[in-house]
């Protein structure tokens, strides 16, 4: 029994931490896709780009990966700004079907991926930081102790701060409310004298900017290689849809749910079933409640 409680406690703790990490990967997509309706399928690959930048800064100058992520965030903001500029002029302005926008980001995904391969090769990369490989052991009782790996804890704390900050920004500030309004009623914004395109551009750039810090967390948690983004493609979209489009707090909750589901399944049923469980949840939600677990607007539009 003690062993069972020990495993369960650890699975829950790891699940919550993992959820925070997943939230950091998904939050940018929650903005670009959830709020702005731009299907940025290249987002996970942008995260990998962020991870490689953190690797570069870490291996060349020994900069802490979290700091490296903060340093690269403005770069991603500019990148997002430019991408939206192209996206708007070519697709959105002409009201082009979403399929073409999707294909555009698909192409972008591969361009970034191959660019990384050409620059860094296909080897797996890691970063060095004093907290990686260390853990914090909390003894709770006889045969029950919880081990918290620092790399997950760092990822969780940074992710939580970033997510809450974005959530606060979008709900409390005028600009944030404008972003949320853009998703619902562009016309009303125009009447209020706000340029909706400018709002969308900045919001999209913000979403992409999260790839800087998110990518840094990625390489702290696991080894990276250029095509890693593809593996996480399903995960991040699952989380955003599960949380309900447009809901930042929903994304955080959904990420924690997926994290806990994965670590419980990995502990008690076998790790290889974990993706089937999380995507099973997604598929069930899509089939029976397309608006997501926490969404308010109907998903089938």
């Amino acid at each position: 029994m003690a062993i069972f409680i020990d495993l369960l406690l650890n699975a829950l703790v790891i699940g919550v931490l993992l959820g925070g990490f997943y939230a950091a990967l998904s939050i940018g997509l929650s903005i670009t896709f959830g709020l702005l309706d731009v299907v940025n399928i290249a987002h996970p690959t942008m995260l990998v780009l962020g991870a490689f930048i953190a690797f570069l800064l870490n291996s060349t100058w020994g900069i802490d990966p979290v700091l490296a992520g903060i340093i690269s965030t403005p770069f991603f903001f500019v990148l997002g700004w430019l991408i939206y500029q192209v996206y708007y002029n070519v697709f959105e302005k002409s009201g082009a079907e979403s399929l073409r926008g999707l294909a555009f980001f698909f192409g972008l995904l591969f361009i970034i991926e191959v660019g990384l391969i050409i620059q860094f090769g296909v080897d797996h990369r890691l970063v060095e930081a004093p907290y990686i490989g260390q853990s914090w052991n909390i003894v709770i009782g006889e045969e029950i102790d919880v081990a918290i790996p620092f790399r997950l804890l760092v990822a969780f704390v940074v992710a939580a701060i970033a997510t809450l900050a974005i959530h606060a920004y979008l709900t409390k500030t005028f600009f944030g409310r404008a972003v949320r309004a853009v998703a619902q009623d562009m016309m009303a914004l125009r009447l209020m004298g706000v340029d909706p395109i400018r709002v969308k551009r900045i919001a999209f750039a913000m979403g992409v900017a999260t790839a800087g810090i998110g990518g840094a967390l990625m390489i702290i948690v696991l080894p990276i290689e250029p095509s890693l983004g593809r593996l996480y493609l399903g995960n991040v979209f699952a989380i955003v849809v599960l949380g309900g489009l447009g809901s930042i707090s929903g994304t955080l909750l959904a990420a924690v749910i997926i994290g806990i589901a994965e670590s419980i399944v990995a502990t008690f049923f076998g790790p290889s079933w974990a993706p089937a469980v999380s995507f099973g949840i997604l598929l069930a939600v899509l089939a029976f409640r397309p608006e997501g677990l926490f969404g308010k607007t109907a998903g089938a539009h």
Binding site: L102, V241, A276, G280, L282, L283, A287, P290
Partner: peptide, 20 residues
Amino acid sequence: RLRGVYFAIATLALAIILET
């Protein structure tokens, strides 16, 4: 009931479950 991007994501999820 799914349209647009939702359909796309559902098919992706289906492929991942099958793979598992």
